[in-house]
Simulated scan of single mutants.
Amino acid sequence: MSVILAADIGGTKIAAARVAADGGLGAGIVEVPTPSRDGAASVVEATVRLLDSLRGPGDEAVAISAAGVVDTVGGTVLGATSSIAGWAGTRLGELVSAGVGLPAWVVGDGNAFGLGLALEYGAVNLVALVAGTGIGGSLIVGGEPVLGAHHAGGHLGHAVALEAAGMVCPCGRVGHLEAVASGYGILAWYHAQGGDPGVTTTRELLDRPGDEVAQAALGVGGSALGAAAGGLVNAFDPEVVVVAGSIARAGDPWEAGLRTSYTNTLIPAVAGTPLELSTAGPETALRGAALHARKHHGAAAGQIRRTALGGRNEEEGGA
């Protein structure tokens, strides 16, 4: 059985597994810390070492889920935040392919996650919102992620949100969803409203049930995310919306704000579209990246065979 070696590269950790055609993860997931402050070359080297440690018979290609704006054709990171030093401009596919000795296919982490969720939910059309320190996601249409004209498809955290008016997003712009609904944004809203300056993480907000400002911050963050999800459903009419990431485990009042705002935003034609909360982890991005690689590696191999056969179909060229 052919196997895809898959890696999910984030700012904190690199996860990897061998993914079989049925989505099975072989011996499971292995992880190492991302040497993010040491620069892109160190991150690539750590990824290659991790993948090499998993090598086995039948490995066909490498799949990489990567943070940043990714050119999936050239395998290059076009743009990125400062979470990995010098990440923008990294020829990730080329470098990992050379290191591992297998063809490599790269997709943005939000789109990898969306593809993995589409597999999990059996959906051909799906909206995925991943709310953690930042907000990412994916629009899966016809079984494929919407990549866009500039490879930036899926950066849903940079849609405009009314609740974020006047608030600065980590990207430097003002009023984006991430500025109010991400872990960063919820904490920023809390401090902007006079919250305890000694609270420095979103996790701390979850442990302050008697802090009215903390509860309001969670509710506003959930409400902003719910409105964004509802707007995407109105525009794209998916089968399901899935919200994942660390913030998706925030509980009330975050979830109450999310669901109320989502329901109130939907137009009647799509009012029955379910919104699901997922506790999916790195296995989802690994499966999604492997699916992307399997499709495109198979198509590339088929094109090579057709070219070798003078443009005829493989079946036509058989004995």
Rank of each mutant, 00 (worst) to 15 (best):
Ser2Met: 15
Leu5Glu: 02
Ala6Phe: 05
Ala7Cys: 08
Ile9Lys: 09
Ala17Tyr: 08
Asp22Ala: 01
Gly24Ala: 14
Gly24Cys: 09
Leu25Thr: 06
Leu25Pro: 06
Pro33His: 03
Pro33Arg: 13
Thr34Arg: 05
Arg37Val: 09
Asp38Gly: 03
Gly39Cys: 04
Ala40Ser: 15
Val44Phe: 08
Ala46Cys: 12
Thr47Glu: 08
Leu54Ala: 05
Leu54Gln: 04
Val70Ile: 13
Val70Gly: 03
Thr72Phe: 12
Val73Pro: 02
Gly74Trp: 04
Leu78Trp: 00
Leu78Phe: 01
Thr81Asp: 15
Gly86Ser: 01
Leu95Ser: 14
Leu95Lys: 13
Val100Ala: 04
Leu119Ile: 13
Ala128Met: 09
Ala131Tyr: 03
Thr133Trp: 04
Glu144Ala: 13
Leu147Asp: 10
Gly148Leu: 09
Gly148Val: 08
His158Phe: 12
Ala159His: 12
Ala161Ser: 10
Glu163Thr: 01
Met167Leu: 15
Val168Met: 11
Cys171Tyr: 12
Val180Gly: 05
Ala181His: 12
Leu187Asp: 00
Ala192Gly: 11
Ala192Asp: 14
Glu212Asn: 09
Val213Ala: 15
Leu218Met: 14
Gly219Val: 05
Gly222Glu: 09
Ser223Met: 08
Ser223Trp: 05
Leu225Arg: 08
Leu225Val: 06
Gly230Arg: 08
Gly231Ile: 02
Pro238Ser: 06
Val240Arg: 15
Val242Cys: 06
Ala244Lys: 04
Ala250Pro: 03
Asp252Trp: 02
Ala256Cys: 07
Ala256Pro: 06
Leu258Ser: 01
Leu258Cys: 11
Thr260Leu: 11
Asn264Gln: 15
Asn264Arg: 15
Leu266Asn: 01
Pro274Ser: 03
Leu275Met: 06
Leu277Asn: 07
Ser278Pro: 05
Thr279Asn: 14
Gly281Thr: 10
Gly281Phe: 06
Glu283Val: 06
Ala285Arg: 09
Ala285His: 10
Leu286His: 11
Gly288Asn: 07
His292Thr: 11
Ala293Phe: 05
Gly298Lys: 14
Gly302His: 11
Glu314Asp: 12
